[in-house]
Design a protein around this nucleic acid. Structure first.
Length: 180
DNA sequence: GATAAGATGTTA
DNA sequence: AACATCTTATCA
């Protein structure tokens, strides 16, 4: 299966967020590979008030300005991590939050951003990792092609600003989307 | 079913 | 003080 490369991520964030649906997320840990199909994403861009990079570079948001295909992992609510993939050219902030995957190999309980990070052992040490390089232990592959009409577009979840941006995408009727 | 509250630590 | 969350408790 084709490894997603820098050119894939070096595009408009919203386009990447939709194209990531149906792709396979892989995590190698202790010789074991955990995999899931991405079924839910959200887009965040530099001029988006809900984005961590909205107010410019900070120690945390600096990762969002790195080259496309960089992992952006941050700690939230005292006990969870969220996993994003940086998009757009280097020095331009943008990222896609992976909100849910459909379990493939020995995975379960991955229907939410905090849960999938816990189940796939995605920790802060992966912040800044190169997702276009398998050696990072975290990479993505092209898998299912999702038809345009099977992508549902809604507003994003869990934020207080820019609540009207229609930048959450998920696969219609998929059982592993968060909430419901 | 629904809604409320509690856990927990980093961030600026 | 807020936070790109999730679990458990307490209603009905």
């Amino acid at each position: 299966m084709g490894l997603l490369d820098k050119d894939f991520y070096n595009r408009d964030t919203v386009v990447v967020a939709k194209d990531l649906l149906g792709c396979k997320l892989n995590r190698q840990v202790e010789g074991q590979v955990l995999s899931g199909i991405i079924v839910e994403t959200e887009a965040y861009t530099q001029d988006d008030p809900a984005c961590h990079a909205f107010k410019g570079k900070t120690p945390r948001s600096i990762t969002l300005f790195k080259q496309p295909g960089t992992a952006y992992v941050y700690f939230i609510y005292g006990m969870y991590h969220c996993f994003n993939i940086v998009t757009e050219p280097e020095n331009m902030a943008g990222a896609v939050l992976i909100r849910a995957v459909e379990p493939v190999s020995p995975l379960k309980n991955t229907n939410g951003p905090g849960k999938l990070c816990r189940e796939m052992n995605i920790l802060k040490e992966l912040n800044g990792a190169d997702v276009t390089d398998k050696n990072s232990g975290l990479w993505l592959e092209k898998c299912d092609d999702i038809s345009h009409k099977d992508i549902v577009t809604t507003t994003r979840i869990g934020i207080k600003t820019a609540v009207d941006y229609p930048w959450r995408f998920y696969i219609r009727d998929n059982l592993f989307v968060s909430k419901k």
